[in-house]
Amino acid sequence: MELIHLRILLALKQSGTLSAAADQLHLTQSALSHQMKNLEQRLGVVLWRKQGRLLVLTQAGKYLSDVAESVIATIDSAEQHLALLGAGKTGKLTVGIDCHACYEWFRTILQPYLQAWPELDVEVTSRYRFNSLEAVRHYKLDAVLTADPAFDGALHYQALFDFELVLIVASRHRLAGRGFIEPSDLRQETVLTYPVDRERLDMFRKVLQPAGIEPLKHITVEETDIMLQLAASQRGVCLLPEWLLAEKADRLALASLRFSDLPLTKTMYLATRHEDVTLEYIQGLIGLASNRPARIDVE
């Protein structure tokens, strides 16, 4: 199997017709058909079937086109990176954000970092939020900011800073002012979280589920600022990094609470491929992130 076969399959998947795929790849239709017939003969499978004027991928063709999408993304990324290096530019850094609250912190270091590396092409994305570590391994991302590492040896994890999760409530909430609270105190509460599976939410996996507690209601909220405003209006409580309360607590009348005998300290990491750790712009990001206080003003 050659790279051209994967490019042909991907072009067919995207265009649906032989002529459009041939135009996209700057090949004649006969050359394209010849390439794929040879591949089908070698593999012993049928990769597409004609359906009117369209070409429809078979099960084998769909599988191989998915493989092609991943492989070609890796190849294209490598070629782009090498081309930038060959042109004398620093390169490109694509950073994934693995958690909603991470954005609020990362934006405080982004501008200083861009100023420190003016020739670096930087992209920040949450496109791979639920499989970002896998995206780094497959060269779709260069680094991921995450508080949930997978220490399996596949990636390098650089610890940046520690932070604490706290329960955020309105300053007039019935629990406000307590020294410590228990998970059972949330039994009659509406819990506000990001729209993420419960298995990935610290509120459920670290607080409620170990205690066998089900809250009165669970509401998902996409934006951090809206979540804090809902909490301030006593429409729910939320578990968030303590830094998110900076400057916001007084203006929105919010308070933070800690659970008795339930430490909720986490560490923020930058995950990268092992071979990229020594790159100057990766080290620059690590240095800036490590020295930046995990306490911000959320505007």
Rank of each mutant, 00 (worst) to 15 (best):
E164W: 07
V169Q: 06
P183C: 12
S171N: 11
R178L: 14
S171I: 12
A170S: 15
R187E: 15
V166R: 13
S171T: 13
V169C: 11
Q188F: 05
D162M: 08
G179P: 00
E182W: 07
R178W: 09
G177Q: 09
L167M: 14
L167W: 05
L165A: 00
E182N: 10
L175R: 06
H173K: 04
R178Y: 04
S184F: 03
L165W: 01
D185T: 10
L165E: 06
F161Q: 14
L186Q: 04
E164I: 13
L167E: 02
P183W: 08
L160V: 11
V166N: 02
V169D: 01
D162Q: 15
S171D: 14
D185H: 13
V166I: 13
L160K: 01
D162W: 02
I168F: 03
L167I: 12
I181A: 07
P183T: 09
S171M: 06
I168E: 00
G177W: 08
G179M: 07
R172L: 07
S184V: 10
L175M: 14
L175K: 05
F161I: 08
V166T: 12
F163P: 00
L165F: 15
L175G: 03
S184H: 06
H173I: 08
G177I: 13
A159C: 01
H173Y: 04
R187L: 13
I181G: 03
S184W: 02
F180Y: 12
L167Q: 06
G177C: 10
G179Y: 01
V169S: 02
R172C: 03
Q188H: 12
R174K: 14
L175P: 07
R172M: 06
E164T: 15
G179Q: 13
R187D: 01
H173W: 02
H173Q: 05
R178C: 09
E164R: 15
A170N: 11
R187H: 03
R172G: 02
G179R: 13
P183K: 09
A170R: 02
S171W: 01
F161A: 14
L160W: 06
D185S: 10
H173G: 01
R187F: 06
R187G: 01
L165T: 00
A170I: 01
A176D: 04
R172A: 14
A170L: 01
L186K: 04
F161N: 12
H173T: 09
Q188I: 01
L175D: 03
I181Y: 05
R187T: 14
F161W: 03
L186W: 05
R178H: 11
V169K: 06
V169H: 05
G177T: 11
F161D: 08
E182I: 06
D162T: 12
L175I: 12
I181W: 09
V166W: 02
A159P: 14
L165D: 02
L186R: 03
L165P: 00
G177M: 13
I181M: 07
E182Y: 11
D162N: 14
D162V: 09
G177V: 12
V169Y: 04
F180P: 00
E164S: 15
S171R: 13
L160D: 02
D162G: 03
D162A: 13
L160E: 00
S184D: 02
A176R: 08
Q188T: 10
F180I: 04
I168Q: 07
L175V: 12
G177E: 07
L186P: 03
P183I: 11
E182G: 00
R174M: 05
S184L: 07
E164C: 11
I168A: 14
S184P: 00
S184M: 02
E182T: 14
G179K: 14
S171V: 11
A159R: 11
